[in-house]
Design a protein around this nucleic acid. Structure first.
Length: 274
DNA sequence: AACGATCCCTGTTGGC
DNA sequence: TGCCAACAGGGATCGT
């Protein structure tokens, strides 16, 4: 499942292969990929012929900056993958967007479950889009950012961590992992965390995301995230709680528990987390 | 406004 | 062995 570390790994892979190249041809073969764009033709018309001048990321959103102040936005959803290969090579199944470049390569967006999307936005649209109302990027958010957004909130801290308007970039896996590292129960009301606990949580978020990034992301099975070059990230071997229901906690030996919270599986250790 | 439920989608898994 | 329901989840949307 692509969360912030997987998206950032994708950006770092894509950047040197894309920046400086010019888009020569664009094919979109699945209309659902463009559901964020008012008119589907806007995407193709807006990016074709433009030179790529940079890449960026905020939370789980990947940005490809084009000359003329157009931003090509990609969201990987839960099964999206970006790869770069020779444009005349074999195309993987479930490839819905192909962007050919002037050096004979193509950027391919592959997404079996089609929860991801692409769009091309003008500066005004980018200011207006939902994702800019997101909270600060989880890699750089500080204690004040988090504490200020939790004041008065009664929902479970796990649910709030996954809310992109609080902090941007955390999904189900890293939320569970960060809460275990911070020794906080996922069911604690967000507003009940004191300053010390908020500090512990922010540090745990940074540490967990950094570890995921250093490992090249999380891969749970062959449907899940792969690095753009096809290699699997190995963070899944270091998960403390996610997917470990019934197995002993690496810290205290207590069996890891699992429950469904807001329709998402939640894993925690009763011995470590309060 | 805040919160939680529901839905979208398809490869994989587990039960019978 | 084979079939099929259940499961996985990011985020939009809707009801409370």
């Amino acid at each position: 499942m692509p969360e912030l570390p997987e998206v950032e790994a994708t950006r770092r892979h894509l950047d040197p292969l894309a920046v400086g190249k010019t888009i020569t041809r664009v094919r979109v073969t699945h209309p659902r990929m463009l559901r964020r764009q008012d008119r589907p033709s806007d995407f193709v018309d807006r990016i074709v012929g433009r030179r790529i001048v940079g890449t960026g990321r905020h939370g789980k959103h990947l940005f490809v900056e084009l000359e003329g102040e157009i931003t090509w936005v990609m969201h990987l959803g839960m099964s999206g993958r970006v790869s770069v290969a020779a444009s005349d090579g074999a195309v993987p199944p479930h490839t819905h967007v192909v962007v050919e470049l002037d050096d004979g390569t193509a950027i391919r967006f592959t997404d079996p479950r089609t929860f991801g999307y692409v769009c091309a936005l003008t500066p005004d649209e980018r200011l207006d889009a939902t994702f800019v109302r997101h909270g600060p990027d989880a890699l750089t958010a500080d204690v004040a950012d988090l504490a200020g957004r939790l004041v008065g909130r009664t929902a479970a801290i796990k649910a709030l961590l996954c809310d992109q308007t609080i902090v941007s970039g955390i999904g189900n896996i890293y939320a569970d992992e960060a809460l275990h590292r911070a020794r906080l129960s996922p069911f604690r009301p967000g507003g009940s965390l004191d300053e010390v606990e908020c500090g512990r949580l922010v540090a745990a978020i940074h540490d967990t995301l950094d570890a995921g990034l250093a490992a090249g992301g999380t891969t749970l099975d062959d449907l899940a995230y792969l690095l753009p070059d096809g290699r699997a990230g190995d963070f899944s071997e270091r998960l403390a709680v996610y997917g470990r229901e019934g197995e002993p906690c690496h810290t205290c030996g207590t069996p890891i528990r699992r429950a469904v919270l807001r329709g998402r599986s939640t894993h925690w250790c009763d011995g470590c987390q309060a």
